[in-house]
Design a binder for these strands. Sequence first.
DNA 1: TAGTGGTCTAGACCACGGG
DNA 2: CCGTGGTCTAGACCACTAC
Lengths: 245, 245
Amino acid sequence: MSEVNLPIASFSPLYEQIKAMILASLQAGEWLPGEVIPSEMELAARYAVSQGTVRKAIDELAAQNLLVRRQGKGTFVATHQEDDWQYRFLRLAPDSGEKFHLISQFLACEQTKATDYVANLLKLKAGDPVIYIDRVQTFAGQPVVFEEIWLPGSRFKGLDLNTLNDWHGPVYALYESQYATHMVRAEEKIKAVSADEGLANHLQVIIGAPLLSVERVAFTYGNKPVEIRHARYDTSEQHYENRLN
Amino acid sequence: MSEVNLPIASFSPLYEQIKAMILASLQAGEWLPGEVIPSEMELAARYAVSQGTVRKAIDELAAQNLLVRRQGKGTFVATHQEDDWQYRFLRLAPDSGEKFHLISQFLACEQTKATDYVANLLKLKAGDPVIYIDRVQTFAGQPVVFEEIWLPGSRFKGLDLNTLNDWHGPVYALYESQYATHMVRAEEKIKAVSADEGLANHLQVIIGAPLLSVERVAFTYGNKPVEIRHARYDTSEQHYENRLN
DNA sequence: TAGTGGTCTAGACCACGGG
DNA sequence: CCGTGGTCTAGACCACTAC
Protein backbone atom coordinates (compact mmCIF):
# COMPACT_ATOMS: atom_id res chain seq x y z
CA MET A 1 0.00 0.00 0.00
CA SER A 2 1.24 3.47 -0.89
CA GLU A 3 1.26 6.41 1.42
CA VAL A 4 -1.92 8.40 1.47
CA ASN A 5 -2.28 12.11 1.95
CA LEU A 6 -4.81 12.69 4.69
CA PRO A 7 -5.56 16.37 5.05
CA ILE A 8 -7.37 16.85 8.35
CA ALA A 9 -8.93 20.15 7.41
CA SER A 10 -9.05 19.76 3.65
CA PHE A 11 -8.44 23.36 2.52
CA SER A 12 -9.91 26.44 4.05
CA PRO A 13 -10.38 29.46 1.79
CA LEU A 14 -9.15 32.82 3.03
CA TYR A 15 -12.64 34.30 3.27
CA GLU A 16 -13.68 31.49 5.62
CA GLN A 17 -10.82 32.41 7.91
CA ILE A 18 -11.87 36.08 7.74
CA LYS A 19 -15.43 35.02 8.54
CA ALA A 20 -14.18 33.12 11.57
CA MET A 21 -12.20 36.13 12.77
CA ILE A 22 -15.15 38.49 12.36
CA LEU A 23 -17.33 35.97 14.19
CA ALA A 24 -14.79 35.79 17.00
CA SER A 25 -14.93 39.59 17.34
CA LEU A 26 -18.73 39.47 17.47
CA GLN A 27 -18.67 36.72 20.07
CA ALA A 28 -16.08 38.61 22.12
CA GLY A 29 -18.27 41.71 22.06
CA GLU A 30 -15.72 43.85 20.23
CA TRP A 31 -18.65 45.24 18.20
CA LEU A 32 -22.01 45.26 19.98
CA PRO A 33 -25.47 44.69 18.45
CA GLY A 34 -26.57 47.80 16.58
CA GLU A 35 -23.05 49.19 16.18
CA VAL A 36 -21.12 49.71 12.93
CA ILE A 37 -18.21 47.43 12.25
CA PRO A 38 -15.08 48.80 10.52
CA SER A 39 -15.36 49.50 6.82
CA GLU A 40 -14.43 46.88 4.26
CA MET A 41 -11.21 48.73 3.47
CA GLU A 42 -10.21 48.88 7.14
CA LEU A 43 -10.89 45.18 7.62
CA ALA A 44 -8.99 44.38 4.44
CA ALA A 45 -6.01 46.26 5.87
CA ARG A 46 -6.37 44.66 9.29
CA TYR A 47 -6.41 41.14 7.88
CA ALA A 48 -4.01 41.92 5.02
CA VAL A 49 -6.32 40.68 2.28
CA SER A 50 -8.11 42.40 -0.58
CA GLN A 51 -11.42 44.18 -0.20
CA GLY A 52 -13.08 41.50 -2.34
CA THR A 53 -12.17 38.79 0.13
CA VAL A 54 -13.57 40.77 3.06
CA ARG A 55 -16.69 41.40 0.98
CA LYS A 56 -17.30 37.71 0.46
CA ALA A 57 -16.89 37.02 4.19
CA ILE A 58 -19.30 39.82 5.11
CA ASP A 59 -21.75 38.75 2.41
CA GLU A 60 -22.07 35.33 3.99
CA LEU A 61 -22.43 36.68 7.52
CA ALA A 62 -25.10 39.07 6.25
CA ALA A 63 -26.89 36.15 4.56
CA GLN A 64 -27.00 34.44 7.96
CA ASN A 65 -28.47 37.60 9.49
CA LEU A 66 -25.48 38.20 11.73
CA LEU A 67 -24.61 41.47 10.01
CA VAL A 68 -26.69 44.03 8.16
CA ARG A 69 -25.28 46.06 5.29
CA ARG A 70 -26.48 49.61 4.69
CA GLN A 71 -25.19 51.26 1.56
CA GLY A 72 -23.53 54.58 2.20
CA LYS A 73 -23.54 54.04 5.96
CA GLY A 74 -21.62 50.91 6.78
CA THR A 75 -22.10 47.36 8.01
CA PHE A 76 -23.89 46.86 11.34
CA VAL A 77 -24.14 44.11 13.92
CA ALA A 78 -27.64 42.64 13.81
CA THR A 79 -29.88 43.41 16.78
CA HIS A 80 -33.32 42.43 18.02
CA GLN A 81 -33.81 46.02 19.14
CA GLU A 82 -34.53 47.30 15.64
CA ASP A 83 -38.19 47.78 14.82
CA ASP A 84 -38.19 45.43 11.86
CA TRP A 85 -36.52 42.70 13.90
CA GLN A 86 -38.88 42.76 16.85
CA TYR A 87 -40.76 39.71 15.65
CA ARG A 88 -38.00 38.06 13.71
CA PHE A 89 -38.61 34.59 15.20
CA LEU A 90 -42.40 34.84 15.48
CA ARG A 91 -44.19 32.86 12.81
CA LEU A 92 -47.69 33.27 14.19
CA ALA A 93 -50.02 35.56 12.24
CA PRO A 94 -53.74 36.37 12.37
CA ASP A 95 -55.88 34.61 9.76
CA SER A 96 -57.43 37.97 8.97
CA GLY A 97 -54.14 39.41 7.77
CA GLU A 98 -54.29 42.29 10.28
CA LYS A 99 -51.15 43.62 11.85
CA PHE A 100 -50.26 41.55 14.88
CA HIS A 101 -49.64 43.27 18.18
CA LEU A 102 -49.24 40.98 21.16
CA ILE A 103 -49.46 42.21 24.73
CA SER A 104 -47.40 40.26 27.22
CA GLN A 105 -48.32 39.44 30.82
CA PHE A 106 -45.65 37.68 32.83
CA LEU A 107 -46.94 35.28 35.47
CA ALA A 108 -43.83 33.87 37.10
CA CYS A 109 -40.04 34.13 37.16
CA GLU A 110 -38.43 31.63 39.48
CA GLN A 111 -35.06 30.12 40.33
CA THR A 112 -35.14 26.34 39.93
CA LYS A 113 -32.87 23.46 39.06
CA ALA A 114 -32.47 21.97 35.61
CA THR A 115 -34.37 18.77 34.93
CA ASP A 116 -32.68 16.21 32.71
CA TYR A 117 -34.70 17.48 29.77
CA VAL A 118 -33.71 21.12 30.26
CA ALA A 119 -30.12 20.34 31.15
CA ASN A 120 -29.77 18.27 28.02
CA LEU A 121 -31.03 20.94 25.65
CA LEU A 122 -29.12 23.78 27.33
CA LYS A 123 -25.99 21.66 27.67
CA LEU A 124 -25.95 22.00 31.46
CA LYS A 125 -25.77 19.40 34.20
CA ALA A 126 -28.99 18.18 35.78
CA GLY A 127 -29.55 20.27 38.91
CA ASP A 128 -27.69 23.35 37.63
CA PRO A 129 -29.49 26.61 38.43
CA VAL A 130 -32.09 27.58 35.87
CA ILE A 131 -34.59 30.43 35.62
CA TYR A 132 -38.18 29.50 34.83
CA ILE A 133 -40.53 32.10 33.36
CA ASP A 134 -44.06 31.88 32.09
CA ARG A 135 -46.41 34.35 30.48
CA VAL A 136 -49.59 34.81 28.50
CA GLN A 137 -49.79 36.96 25.39
CA THR A 138 -53.04 38.50 24.21
CA PHE A 139 -54.18 39.92 20.90
CA ALA A 140 -57.20 42.22 20.81
CA GLY A 141 -58.01 41.17 24.36
CA GLN A 142 -57.96 37.45 23.59
CA PRO A 143 -55.28 35.21 25.11
CA VAL A 144 -53.45 33.58 22.22
CA VAL A 145 -50.09 32.34 23.50
CA PHE A 146 -49.04 30.63 26.72
CA GLU A 147 -45.29 30.38 26.96
CA GLU A 148 -42.82 28.75 29.34
CA ILE A 149 -39.16 29.77 29.19
CA TRP A 150 -36.02 28.21 30.73
CA LEU A 151 -32.73 30.10 30.91
CA PRO A 152 -29.33 29.12 32.31
CA GLY A 153 -29.08 30.81 35.72
CA SER A 154 -25.39 31.63 35.34
CA ARG A 155 -25.86 33.81 32.29
CA PHE A 156 -29.07 35.53 33.40
CA LYS A 157 -28.22 36.32 37.03
CA GLY A 158 -30.71 38.62 38.74
CA LEU A 159 -33.51 38.35 36.21
CA ASP A 160 -36.81 38.59 38.09
CA LEU A 161 -40.49 39.30 37.62
CA ASN A 162 -40.08 43.04 38.23
CA THR A 163 -37.40 43.34 35.57
CA LEU A 164 -39.65 41.55 33.11
CA ASN A 165 -42.75 43.58 33.91
CA ASP A 166 -40.82 46.87 33.68
CA TRP A 167 -39.47 45.90 30.30
CA HIS A 168 -41.49 47.01 27.32
CA GLY A 169 -40.45 45.26 24.17
CA PRO A 170 -39.36 41.84 22.97
CA VAL A 171 -37.68 39.53 25.43
CA TYR A 172 -34.76 39.03 23.03
CA ALA A 173 -34.07 42.77 23.17
CA LEU A 174 -33.89 42.52 26.95
CA TYR A 175 -31.45 39.62 26.75
CA GLU A 176 -29.30 41.75 24.47
CA SER A 177 -29.25 44.97 26.46
CA GLN A 178 -29.11 43.49 29.96
CA TYR A 179 -27.33 40.18 29.54
CA ALA A 180 -25.07 40.70 26.51
CA THR A 181 -26.75 37.78 24.79
CA HIS A 182 -27.78 38.09 21.16
CA MET A 183 -29.92 35.32 19.68
CA VAL A 184 -28.70 34.24 16.29
CA ARG A 185 -30.78 31.25 15.35
CA ALA A 186 -33.46 28.92 16.71
CA GLU A 187 -34.94 25.48 16.10
CA GLU A 188 -38.59 24.64 16.63
CA LYS A 189 -40.45 21.35 17.00
CA ILE A 190 -44.18 21.59 16.48
CA LYS A 191 -46.99 19.27 17.51
CA ALA A 192 -50.74 19.39 17.95
CA VAL A 193 -51.87 18.77 21.53
CA SER A 194 -55.06 18.94 23.61
CA ALA A 195 -55.58 21.64 26.21
CA ASP A 196 -55.36 20.36 29.78
CA GLU A 197 -57.03 22.23 32.60
CA GLY A 198 -54.14 24.65 33.15
CA LEU A 199 -53.78 25.52 29.47
CA ALA A 200 -57.54 25.81 29.09
CA ASN A 201 -57.54 28.41 31.88
CA HIS A 202 -54.62 30.41 30.53
CA LEU A 203 -55.95 30.51 27.00
CA GLN A 204 -59.66 30.56 27.83
CA VAL A 205 -60.52 27.56 25.71
CA ILE A 206 -62.36 24.38 26.65
CA ILE A 207 -60.46 21.42 28.04
CA GLY A 208 -59.44 19.21 25.13
CA ALA A 209 -59.30 22.05 22.61
CA PRO A 210 -56.55 21.53 20.01
CA LEU A 211 -53.50 23.74 20.53
CA LEU A 212 -50.24 24.15 18.67
CA SER A 213 -47.27 23.14 20.83
CA VAL A 214 -44.03 24.86 19.77
CA GLU A 215 -40.79 23.90 21.47
CA ARG A 216 -37.96 26.24 20.62
CA VAL A 217 -34.26 26.14 21.42
CA ALA A 218 -32.49 29.44 20.68
CA PHE A 219 -28.75 29.83 20.12
CA THR A 220 -26.19 32.66 20.45
CA TYR A 221 -22.89 32.97 18.65
CA GLY A 222 -20.97 29.74 18.47
CA ASN A 223 -24.08 27.54 18.38
CA LYS A 224 -24.47 27.90 22.12
CA PRO A 225 -28.03 27.09 23.26
CA VAL A 226 -29.20 29.67 25.82
CA GLU A 227 -32.97 29.55 25.86
CA ILE A 228 -35.71 26.94 25.80
CA ARG A 229 -39.22 28.08 25.07
CA HIS A 230 -42.30 25.92 25.10
CA ALA A 231 -45.26 27.81 23.68
CA ARG A 232 -48.86 26.78 23.14
CA TYR A 233 -50.74 28.74 20.50
CA ASP A 234 -54.50 28.96 20.18
CA THR A 235 -54.74 28.66 16.40
CA SER A 236 -58.49 29.11 16.05
CA GLU A 237 -58.04 32.66 14.76
CA GLN A 238 -54.36 32.62 13.79
CA HIS A 239 -51.88 30.30 12.14
CA TYR A 240 -48.18 29.47 12.04
CA GLU A 241 -46.62 30.55 8.74
CA ASN A 242 -43.70 28.89 7.10
CA ARG A 243 -41.90 29.31 3.82
CA LEU A 244 -40.15 26.40 2.10
CA ASN A 245 -37.41 27.18 -0.40
CA MET B 1 -41.33 73.84 -7.62
CA SER B 2 -38.32 72.40 -9.37
CA GLU B 3 -38.36 69.48 -11.75
CA VAL B 4 -37.93 66.11 -10.12
CA ASN B 5 -36.20 63.09 -11.53
CA LEU B 6 -38.51 60.09 -11.19
CA PRO B 7 -36.80 56.88 -12.20
CA ILE B 8 -39.49 54.25 -12.74
CA ALA B 9 -37.19 51.27 -12.29
CA SER B 10 -34.53 52.83 -10.10
CA PHE B 11 -31.40 51.10 -11.41
CA SER B 12 -31.03 47.45 -12.24
CA PRO B 13 -27.57 45.95 -11.94
CA LEU B 14 -26.28 43.86 -14.80
CA TYR B 15 -26.27 40.65 -12.79
CA GLU B 16 -29.97 41.08 -12.05
CA GLN B 17 -30.64 41.23 -15.77
CA ILE B 18 -28.53 38.12 -16.29
CA LYS B 19 -30.48 36.41 -13.51
CA ALA B 20 -33.72 37.31 -15.26
CA MET B 21 -32.45 35.90 -18.55
CA ILE B 22 -31.32 32.64 -16.97
CA LEU B 23 -34.66 32.39 -15.20
CA ALA B 24 -36.46 32.93 -18.49
CA SER B 25 -34.48 30.06 -20.02
CA LEU B 26 -35.39 27.81 -17.10
CA GLN B 27 -39.04 28.75 -17.35
CA ALA B 28 -39.01 28.19 -21.12
CA GLY B 29 -37.54 24.73 -20.59
CA GLU B 30 -34.32 25.46 -22.50
CA TRP B 31 -32.50 23.52 -19.77
CA LEU B 32 -34.51 20.81 -18.00
CA PRO B 33 -34.34 19.73 -14.36
CA GLY B 34 -31.23 17.63 -13.79
CA GLU B 35 -29.41 18.93 -16.86
CA VAL B 36 -26.21 20.99 -16.97
CA ILE B 37 -26.47 24.59 -18.01
CA PRO B 38 -23.70 26.17 -20.10
CA SER B 39 -20.45 26.96 -18.32
CA GLU B 40 -19.86 30.36 -16.77
CA MET B 41 -17.51 31.28 -19.60
CA GLU B 42 -20.06 30.35 -22.25
CA LEU B 43 -22.79 32.34 -20.53
CA ALA B 44 -20.42 35.29 -20.12
CA ALA B 45 -19.82 35.19 -23.87
CA ARG B 46 -23.52 34.78 -24.66
CA TYR B 47 -24.53 37.77 -22.59
CA ALA B 48 -21.39 39.76 -23.32
CA VAL B 49 -20.44 40.32 -19.69
CA SER B 50 -17.54 39.17 -17.55
CA GLN B 51 -17.42 35.79 -15.85
CA GLY B 52 -17.69 37.51 -12.47
CA THR B 53 -21.05 38.99 -13.34
CA VAL B 54 -22.42 35.63 -14.47
CA ARG B 55 -21.04 34.13 -11.26
CA LYS B 56 -22.96 36.56 -9.10
CA ALA B 57 -26.18 35.82 -10.99
CA ILE B 58 -25.69 32.06 -10.68
CA ASP B 59 -24.72 32.40 -7.00
CA GLU B 60 -28.05 33.99 -6.21
CA LEU B 61 -30.05 31.45 -8.21
CA ALA B 62 -28.16 28.67 -6.43
CA ALA B 63 -28.93 30.31 -3.07
CA GLN B 64 -32.63 30.10 -3.99
CA ASN B 65 -32.22 26.41 -4.84
CA LEU B 66 -33.02 26.91 -8.51
CA LEU B 67 -29.55 25.81 -9.61
CA VAL B 68 -27.00 23.49 -8.06
CA ARG B 69 -23.27 24.09 -8.48
CA ARG B 70 -20.91 21.10 -8.64
CA GLN B 71 -17.24 21.93 -8.73
CA GLY B 72 -15.40 20.32 -11.62
CA LYS B 73 -18.66 19.24 -13.27
CA GLY B 74 -20.81 22.26 -13.96
CA THR B 75 -23.98 23.97 -12.84
CA PHE B 76 -27.20 21.95 -12.91
CA VAL B 77 -30.90 22.71 -12.93
CA ALA B 78 -32.38 21.70 -9.57
CA THR B 79 -34.65 18.65 -9.60
CA HIS B 80 -36.87 16.79 -7.16
CA GLN B 81 -35.66 13.54 -8.71
CA GLU B 82 -32.32 13.57 -6.91
CA ASP B 83 -32.11 11.37 -3.83
CA ASP B 84 -31.21 14.15 -1.47
CA TRP B 85 -34.12 16.28 -2.72
CA GLN B 86 -36.84 13.68 -2.37
CA TYR B 87 -38.07 15.16 0.87
CA ARG B 88 -37.02 18.73 0.32
CA PHE B 89 -40.37 20.19 1.40
CA LEU B 90 -41.17 17.64 4.13
CA ARG B 91 -40.65 19.03 7.60
CA LEU B 92 -42.16 16.09 9.48
CA ALA B 93 -39.73 13.86 11.37
CA PRO B 94 -40.09 11.01 13.89
CA ASP B 95 -39.53 12.01 17.53
CA SER B 96 -37.21 9.03 17.82
CA GLY B 97 -34.77 10.43 15.29
CA GLU B 98 -35.04 7.35 13.08
CA LYS B 99 -34.84 7.68 9.34
CA PHE B 100 -38.26 8.48 7.95
CA HIS B 101 -39.67 6.36 5.16
CA LEU B 102 -43.29 7.06 4.26
CA ILE B 103 -45.38 4.68 2.20
CA SER B 104 -48.06 6.30 0.12
CA GLN B 105 -51.54 4.92 -0.62
CA PHE B 106 -53.62 6.98 -3.02
CA LEU B 107 -57.38 6.86 -2.37
CA ALA B 108 -58.88 9.06 -5.05
CA CYS B 109 -58.01 11.12 -8.12
CA GLU B 110 -61.01 12.92 -9.57
CA GLN B 111 -61.91 15.66 -12.01
CA THR B 112 -63.89 18.41 -10.29
CA LYS B 113 -64.49 22.14 -10.51
CA ALA B 114 -62.61 24.76 -8.54
CA THR B 115 -64.37 26.13 -5.49
CA ASP B 116 -63.83 29.81 -4.72
CA TYR B 117 -61.19 28.85 -2.18
CA VAL B 118 -59.20 26.69 -4.60
CA ALA B 119 -59.67 29.05 -7.54
CA ASN B 120 -58.40 31.94 -5.48
CA LEU B 121 -55.21 30.23 -4.34
CA LEU B 122 -54.44 28.72 -7.76
CA LYS B 123 -55.37 31.95 -9.55
CA LEU B 124 -58.09 30.24 -11.57
CA LYS B 125 -61.75 31.11 -12.06
CA ALA B 126 -64.33 29.42 -9.86
CA GLY B 127 -65.63 26.40 -11.78
CA ASP B 128 -62.43 25.86 -13.80
CA PRO B 129 -61.45 22.19 -14.06
CA VAL B 130 -59.39 20.95 -11.14
CA ILE B 131 -57.98 17.57 -10.18
CA TYR B 132 -58.61 16.38 -6.63
CA ILE B 133 -56.38 13.73 -5.08
CA ASP B 134 -56.22 12.28 -1.62
CA ARG B 135 -53.95 9.78 0.03
CA VAL B 136 -52.76 8.31 3.31
CA GLN B 137 -49.08 7.90 4.17
CA THR B 138 -47.89 5.34 6.68
CA PHE B 139 -44.69 4.96 8.65
CA ALA B 140 -43.84 1.58 10.15
CA GLY B 141 -47.37 0.45 9.44
CA GLN B 142 -49.00 3.38 11.23
CA PRO B 143 -50.99 5.96 9.25
CA VAL B 144 -49.36 9.32 9.90
CA VAL B 145 -50.44 11.69 7.13
CA PHE B 146 -53.76 12.27 5.39
CA GLU B 147 -53.36 14.58 2.45
CA GLU B 148 -55.69 16.28 -0.03
CA ILE B 149 -54.27 17.82 -3.19
CA TRP B 150 -55.78 20.17 -5.79
CA LEU B 151 -54.14 20.74 -9.17
CA PRO B 152 -55.17 22.90 -12.14
CA GLY B 153 -56.76 20.54 -14.68
CA SER B 154 -55.26 22.32 -17.67
CA ARG B 155 -51.67 21.71 -16.65
CA PHE B 156 -52.13 18.14 -15.37
CA LYS B 157 -54.32 16.68 -18.11
CA GLY B 158 -54.75 12.92 -17.93
CA LEU B 159 -53.48 12.41 -14.39
CA ASP B 160 -55.44 9.55 -12.84
CA LEU B 161 -55.36 7.04 -10.01
CA ASN B 162 -53.51 4.42 -12.08
CA THR B 163 -50.75 6.84 -12.97
CA LEU B 164 -50.36 7.71 -9.32
CA ASN B 165 -50.35 4.14 -8.08
CA ASP B 166 -47.84 3.07 -10.74
CA TRP B 167 -45.53 5.87 -9.75
CA HIS B 168 -42.93 5.05 -7.13
CA GLY B 169 -41.34 8.14 -5.72
CA PRO B 170 -42.23 11.64 -4.63
CA VAL B 171 -45.20 13.31 -6.28
CA TYR B 172 -43.07 16.33 -7.17
CA ALA B 173 -40.81 14.08 -9.24
CA LEU B 174 -43.87 12.87 -11.15
CA TYR B 175 -44.97 16.46 -11.82
CA GLU B 176 -41.51 17.13 -13.20
CA SER B 177 -41.12 14.12 -15.45
CA GLN B 178 -44.69 13.89 -16.71
CA TYR B 179 -46.01 17.43 -16.61
CA ALA B 180 -42.91 19.59 -17.08
CA THR B 181 -43.64 21.30 -13.80
CA HIS B 182 -40.83 21.89 -11.32
CA MET B 183 -41.76 23.14 -7.85
CA VAL B 184 -39.53 25.94 -6.70
CA ARG B 185 -41.00 27.18 -3.46
CA ALA B 186 -43.97 26.67 -1.13
CA GLU B 187 -45.83 28.43 1.65
CA GLU B 188 -47.45 26.62 4.56
CA LYS B 189 -50.06 27.69 7.09
CA ILE B 190 -50.25 25.51 10.17
CA LYS B 191 -52.98 25.06 12.75
CA ALA B 192 -53.99 22.56 15.39
CA VAL B 193 -57.37 20.91 14.74
CA SER B 194 -59.50 18.08 16.14
CA ALA B 195 -60.01 14.87 14.20
CA ASP B 196 -63.51 14.53 12.77
CA GLU B 197 -64.92 11.11 11.94
CA GLY B 198 -63.32 10.93 8.50
CA LEU B 199 -59.87 11.96 9.68
CA ALA B 200 -60.15 9.65 12.69
CA ASN B 201 -60.75 6.75 10.31
CA HIS B 202 -57.95 7.61 7.92
CA LEU B 203 -55.39 8.14 10.67
CA GLN B 204 -56.74 5.55 13.12
CA VAL B 205 -57.06 7.97 16.00
CA ILE B 206 -60.04 8.72 18.19
CA ILE B 207 -62.52 11.41 17.18
CA GLY B 208 -61.38 14.69 18.70
CA ALA B 209 -57.70 13.76 18.71
CA PRO B 210 -55.44 16.78 18.08
CA LEU B 211 -53.94 16.86 14.59
CA LEU B 212 -51.60 19.24 12.80
CA SER B 213 -53.31 20.87 9.82
CA VAL B 214 -50.83 22.00 7.16
CA GLU B 215 -52.08 23.96 4.17
CA ARG B 216 -49.48 24.33 1.48
CA VAL B 217 -49.43 26.31 -1.76
CA ALA B 218 -46.55 25.33 -4.05
CA PHE B 219 -45.15 27.51 -6.83
CA THR B 220 -43.22 26.94 -10.11
CA TYR B 221 -41.00 29.40 -11.91
CA GLY B 222 -42.41 32.88 -12.05
CA ASN B 223 -44.27 32.59 -8.73
CA LYS B 224 -47.04 30.64 -10.41
CA PRO B 225 -49.09 28.64 -7.89
CA VAL B 226 -49.76 25.14 -9.24
CA GLU B 227 -50.59 22.96 -6.27
CA ILE B 228 -52.65 23.17 -3.11
CA ARG B 229 -52.08 20.57 -0.46
CA HIS B 230 -53.99 20.23 2.76
CA ALA B 231 -52.35 17.69 5.04
CA ARG B 232 -53.26 16.47 8.50
CA TYR B 233 -50.39 14.99 10.51
CA ASP B 234 -50.74 12.73 13.51
CA THR B 235 -48.03 14.25 15.69
CA SER B 236 -48.22 11.84 18.59
CA GLU B 237 -45.00 10.12 17.50
CA GLN B 238 -43.55 12.73 15.13
CA HIS B 239 -43.16 16.49 14.91
CA TYR B 240 -42.86 19.30 12.42
CA GLU B 241 -39.35 20.75 12.40
CA ASN B 242 -38.48 24.31 11.57
CA ARG B 243 -35.33 26.37 11.65
CA LEU B 244 -35.40 30.12 12.26
CA ASN B 245 -32.46 32.21 11.05
C1' DT C 1 -17.24 66.51 -0.87
C1' DA C 2 -15.72 62.51 1.44
C1' DG C 3 -16.70 57.93 2.84
C1' DT C 4 -19.43 53.83 2.69
C1' DG C 5 -21.14 49.79 0.36
C1' DG C 6 -22.37 48.02 -4.64
C1' DT C 7 -21.12 46.74 -9.38
C1' DC C 8 -18.13 45.28 -13.00
C1' DT C 9 -13.97 43.90 -15.12
C1' DA C 10 -9.69 41.16 -16.36
C1' DG C 11 -6.55 38.06 -15.15
C1' DA C 12 -3.96 34.63 -12.31
C1' DC C 13 -4.10 30.62 -9.96
C1' DC C 14 -6.35 26.57 -7.17
C1' DA C 15 -9.40 22.38 -6.42
C1' DC C 16 -12.12 18.94 -8.32
C1' DG C 17 -13.90 15.47 -11.76
C1' DG C 18 -13.39 12.65 -15.51
C1' DG C 19 -11.27 11.04 -19.62
C1' DC D 1 -4.77 16.29 -19.34
C1' DC D 2 -8.46 19.58 -19.86
C1' DG D 3 -12.66 21.85 -18.49
C1' DT D 4 -15.49 23.02 -14.72
C1' DG D 5 -16.42 25.82 -10.75
C1' DG D 6 -13.84 28.30 -6.65
C1' DT D 7 -10.65 31.76 -4.79
C1' DC D 8 -8.11 36.00 -4.76
C1' DT D 9 -6.46 40.29 -6.40
C1' DA D 10 -6.32 45.23 -8.04
C1' DG D 11 -8.51 48.77 -9.85
C1' DA D 12 -12.25 51.62 -11.96
C1' DC D 13 -16.50 53.48 -11.44
C1' DC D 14 -21.49 53.93 -9.50
C1' DA D 15 -25.09 54.79 -5.80
C1' DC D 16 -26.26 56.23 -1.43
C1' DT D 17 -25.65 58.94 3.04
C1' DA D 18 -24.18 62.53 5.72
C1' DC D 19 -21.97 66.59 6.63
